[in-house]
Amino acid sequence: MEESLLIIYCSEGGRKALQKMSSEGFRLPSGVCTFELPCTGRINDVMLMETLQNGVRGIFVAGCREENCKYLDGNKRALRRIKRIKKLLSDAGIEGKHIEMQTFGPDEGKRLYSAINDFAGKVGVS
């Protein structure tokens, strides 16, 4: 997992955006692995921190659009949690570890593709 990028996506919006992305002919960079969760609301600090600690370069979380979470506010909570961890990482001056979350509608394959690519560029995974 060293030098790789992890995408965590939810089974609803995130998954559909990813499928849309591939159906439009976009492909993931090779150093990227994917992991599916029912809802991004399940992500917690410990899981993310320990994953980063194990050597992954960055974690990109793809959730549902804000007003469209199947579980009401799982995505919003995840967004806030990730904001919290981002702050922790930057306060601790931890270089080269990145984490980001964005929300996608099921039709936003292209935006997901460019978001992942931007992020991969930022963390240096190609």
């Binding site: 600090d45 410990v46 921190m49 320990e50 922790l88 990482l89 601790a92 931890i94």
Partner: peptide
């Protein structure tokens, strides 16, 4: 317990 785990990870990385 959760904060302890997060803190440990942060210190290990930083």
């Amino acid at each position: 317990e959760k904060e302890v785990k997060v803190m440990c990870s942060a210190i290990r990385m930083a």
